[in-house]
């Protein structure tokens, strides 16, 4: 079984996250890039299967301009090999380009199952997995909070907006997971040392095949025209409850016509 895991570098949510109004992109200098928490869980889901089926190959794929440190981290956790898509032509890629590029790399690598995060913590779009599945022409199971993998299919629970579904699909397929899935393992010292010797392939758009090229050349695309920073919120009164807090709070709410 060959499992491809899509991982993304995002600004650390514990730090200040910024968009640069000049370039209209994420300000990568403003915050440390880390492997998205949901991406770690996606890697964990693949490794958990590999633990019980040693002939499983886990390939981590990421597209982005930055360093390869998140790929090395996934290799240290136990992934078999890594693919990094990086090309100046892809600077400012929208969702359409990103999905086409990822699909091109996945096709080139070969796959039985693709595991992605449900939503990244910076983009939060949550549509890349669906777009990738359509490009690959395979079933899609998003938002899984449980995932059972077997040699010929997947099954999992999906809490959609108003109900919980048990869904299944034959392989090959694309799935995305939620943070209800188990926490990721930490890389061991041995894993970290070994990661340096594992294969890490770097791809440019020229390697991604004709379909990706077609999207990049001809599809409609979304363009960011303006980024505006919202003024920070200013805190209002903060009172210590001395027995009158409720009366003051009710007055405040009624002054705002909220009660």
């Amino acid at each position: 079984m060959k499992i491809v895991v899509l991982i993304k570098e995002v600004p650390d949510t514990w730090g200040e996250r910024r968009l640069d109004p000049g370039t209209r992109r994420v300000d990568r200098a403003g915050s440390d890039g880390v492997l998205d928490e949901i991406g770690e869980r996606a890697v964990e889901a693949a490794l958990a299967y590999k633990d019980g089926a040693a002939d499983t190959e886990v390939v981590v794929v990421s597209m982005g301009p930055s360093s390869t440190s998140i790929l090395r981290r996934a290799l240290a956790m136990g992934a078999t090999s890594a693919v990094h898509i990086v090309d100046d032509r892809l600077v400012g890629a929208d969702l359409g380009w990103t999905a086409a590029a990822l699909a091109g790399a996945i096709e080139r690598t070969g796959f039985d199952l693709v595991i992605a995060g449900g939503e990244s913590t910076d983009g939060r779009g949550g549509v890349i997995p669906a777009m990738v599945a359509e490009h690959l022409g395979v079933p899609l199971a998003t938002g899984l909070s449980t995932l059972q993998i077997s040699p010929d299919g997947i099954r999992g629970e999906r809490t959609a907006d108003e109900e919980t579904l048990t869904i299944s699909a034959a392989l090959p397929a694309v799935v995305s997971i939620t943070e209800r899935m188990p926490d990721a393992r930490f890389p061991s010292f041995k894993g970290t040392m070994g990661a340096k010797k594992k294969p890490l392939e770097v791809l440019s758009t020229a390697d991604l095949g004709p379909k990706a090229a077609q999207v990049i050349d001809t599809a409609a695309r979304s363009i960011v025209v303006e980024v505006v920073e919202r003024p920070a919120r200013v805190a209002g009164p903060k009172i210590v409850d001395d027995g009158t807090a409720v009366a003051q709070l009710v007055d405040f709410l009624s002054s705002k016509q909220l009660v």
Partner: peptide, 23 residues
């Protein structure tokens, strides 16, 4: 921008080569 809406939006945009903006 719901679970189903996002799946459909992503698939449609990829199938038709449309531009997509979410949320």
């Amino acid at each position: 921008h719901s679970a189903e809406g996002r799946d459909v939006a992503g698939r449609v945009a990829a199938r038709l080569g449309a531009g997509i903006v979410v949320d």
